[in-house]
Computed example of a mutant assay.
Amino acid sequence: MKRCEMFLLLVFSASALSDGGGLLRSCKIKDIECLSKSTEQFLEKTCKGIPEADIRAIDPLVIPALEYTAPDIGGVSLHFKNINISGLKNQMISDFQMDKDKKSVVLKLNVALNIVSDLDVKLSGISKTLSGTYKAKATTLATANYNYDLKNNDKGVRYFEVLPETITCSIVGEPEASLNDELVQALRKDEHIQEGIVKYEKKRDECKEKTICKIVQKAYETVIHNIRAAAKFLPAEDFFQDI
């Protein structure tokens, strides 16, 4: 075992695991109830982050910046800053499929999120930015697809290597999204954005969902990062009994 891996195990033995419970429950691959409890346990113990293990805080999760050019609103790009997302510690497994032959995983997670962000609305073709705040509430279903490999260390202990993921998102029910009043008034008065507003009004619900999902997809990069980080020091059998 590498020295850094030994250090991490000692850290968790002395601190994170001092209450008698590990980060995970070892489950059978098709036991969704066990996997759900394991997810709950992992989130409870890691949601504030464990820097020494490269596990990042997810509740609240802060995304410094995210740019989104809405395809249905011509000439407008949205620049989100200091995105604060709460609720990820309460996410639940909706479905989990592991193919041991293809070494692939489909993980679906359901979660109700609150999003608050600063927002710059930039108009293409002219040097103009309108600034304000953005808020949203939504129940989302995030789906992560990724492959994995199994590798043995020098002691013969198997570990997962989680390969790059693809994340998709859908909205469950009716989401809420709003801008602060000053920004709304500025957008309505600006002659350069009138065409974009007309297009937005025709596809309001679709635009709202696409914008929220763009943020959710970015957030789940951190969620999967934490799974990848845990897999580097927790043996594969800590995840699954029948791997």
Rank of each mutant, 00 (worst) to 15 (best):
D154A: 13
Y134H: 07
V105E: 09
C34L: 03
T39A: 07
S104R: 11
L23M: 12
Q41C: 10
H79R: 12
Y148M: 14
V62D: 08
L23N: 05
L107H: 14
A70R: 11
G156M: 03
I73V: 15
A144P: 03
F160R: 00
K103N: 14
L123C: 06
N82V: 05
D95F: 08
P71W: 12
P60S: 05
T69V: 13
L107G: 08
L88M: 12
C34S: 02
A144V: 12
G125S: 00
V105Y: 11
L88I: 08
M92L: 11
P71L: 14
T129V: 13
V121G: 02
L78D: 09
A70N: 15
H79A: 10
V121I: 14
K137P: 01
Y134P: 03
L107Q: 13
G22N: 12
Q41N: 13
E52K: 11
L88E: 07
K100T: 14
G22Q: 10
S127K: 06
T39L: 12
D120R: 03
E67R: 14
L88W: 10
L123A: 02
T133D: 05
M92G: 00
Y134D: 03
I93T: 10
G87A: 09
K100L: 15
N153A: 04
K100Y: 10
L150T: 13
L113R: 03
F42Y: 13
Q41P: 07
L24M: 05
S36Y: 01
L61C: 08
A70Y: 08
L130S: 03
T133V: 05
G75W: 12
T143Y: 10
L61S: 06
L43Y: 09
K81M: 11
V76R: 09
Q97T: 08
K89I: 08
A142Y: 06
G125A: 00
S127R: 04
T139W: 00
S127Y: 00
A70P: 09
G132F: 06
I115H: 02
L88S: 07
I126S: 02
N153E: 08
S131N: 08
G74Y: 12
A57N: 04
P60V: 04
I93Y: 13
